[in-house]
Amino acid sequence: MASVMEIYQLLPKTNCKECGKSTCMAFAVDLLSRKVKVGDCPPLVREDKYKANYEKLSGMFTPVDNVTETGLIVHADKCIGCGNCVVACPVNVAADPMGAGSGKAPTCDRIILKVEDGIVKAMNVQECRRFGENKILCVACIDTCPTKAIEFV
């Protein structure tokens, strides 16, 4: 994922406030955490000279309608359903060592990742180690994905 600076560089940098934010940098920060959409910047949409940047940003923020409440996103168009994340996820291993944790079909419903219709689906995400009071920066599902189909925002 791009950094906030990279996003900022693609914005008009005029601090026009049309979006309701005080600066373009503030907009960039909100865009990164997906609190606003690329199209929420009026000059970017309106003015021809920003067209290339608008397209670039839109490409970086493909619409996702399946952001879970904890910020885990599965890009269904990139997922190959290999299940690497399913078996690598430490929560899955703890909850279902002989099923999902062994690379096989899940045998319990407390797991957080499983493959359905060829694409990985997130569930019970409140159990994910990246969230909650004792959160850690676990990257098991991201590191093992061959197509970068999983992202946290």
Partner: peptide, 24 residues
């Protein structure tokens, strides 16, 4: 050999655990 299925009207409705290629 661990593919789960849900049928509807005699047809496959959902396929569990198969990859993208297998599901297709």
């Amino acid at each position: 050999d661990d593919i789960g299925v849900e049928l509807e009207g005699g047809k496959l409705n959902k396929v569990h655990t198969a990859c993208r290629k297998g599901f297709a």
